[in-house]
Design a protein around this nucleic acid. Structure first.
Lengths: 120, 120
DNA sequence: TTGCATTTACGAATTCTTTCGTAGATTTGA
DNA sequence: TCAAATCTACGAAAGAATTCGTAAATGCAA
């Protein structure tokens, strides 16, 4: 159900690019120390788990993510808030904002979002 | 170096309570399906890794976290932003705010924090 | 004191994840 | 056509992480 770390990296690529062959994912990840067949195997396992679908009509299979991006991200986020931040969303948010150089534009975006939330 | 998920749960308890025997941690976690000796073993491993220190002067050993809470949380946060949110802090923040019932007080706290960041 | 409960130590089993070698199929282009 | 390149399938090894059984030590209470 919950993707592993490696699976997440692959999903990342699939979510971004939409459809990919194994080779495309392999190249996008660009991991030295990891061979092609490793990525292939992972993607086959993901297929068994129905995390991805694939088109096998041509020799080169084309994979597509089959789980929802936002839902999956949320799953990780919740787990993290729980096990790392003891359930405190605001602590996570503040640490995230504090420890990363976030641009003024991004900060404004977040502010707008906050206002929107409050008036709702 | 980087704690595993189980180790994180234990650290959580230690950070909150300060000092704990294995039994205290075991009870705080309150996991059905996981026996006492499992937690004990995990904490012994954490000791080997020097994630925790322990006082063995009495029969019941007393454990204390030996790694920095904020630093460790950040490590997880960064990893997450990277592998789950494709490097976008603001997307993580907005999703965190959107999908959890966060109180008005918390939201205000975050707003203040944002203002503070901008005028800095 | 003696035995019961609690605790630690430790090895080993189990499960999950990642890794890759190899074999066989398919495509391509010389 | 056939050889090289590319791809999939698959098993199995290696590595992490988790789990617990059992034995031995310790402390406590009757």
């Amino acid at each position: 159900m919950k993707p592993t770390e490696s699976e997440m990296e692959i999903l990342q690529v699939l979510w971004n690019k939409g459809q990919c062959s194994v080779r495309e994912v392999f190249e996008a990840l660009n991991k030295k120390d990891v061979g092609y067949t490793t990525i292939l195997k992972l993607m086959q396992i993901m297929h068994e788990k129905e995390m991805v679908t694939r088109d096998t009509s041509s020799k080169t299979h084309i994979y597509t993510a089959n789980i929802n991006k936002e839902k999956t991200q949320n799953q990780f986020l919740n787990k993290m808030i729980d096990t790392v931040y003891n359930g405190s969303t605001s602590r996570l948010v503040m640490q995230a904002l504090g420890n990363h150089k976030t641009s003024k534009e991004e900060l404004d975006l977040i502010k707008d979002y906050l206002n929107q939330l409050e008036t709702r």
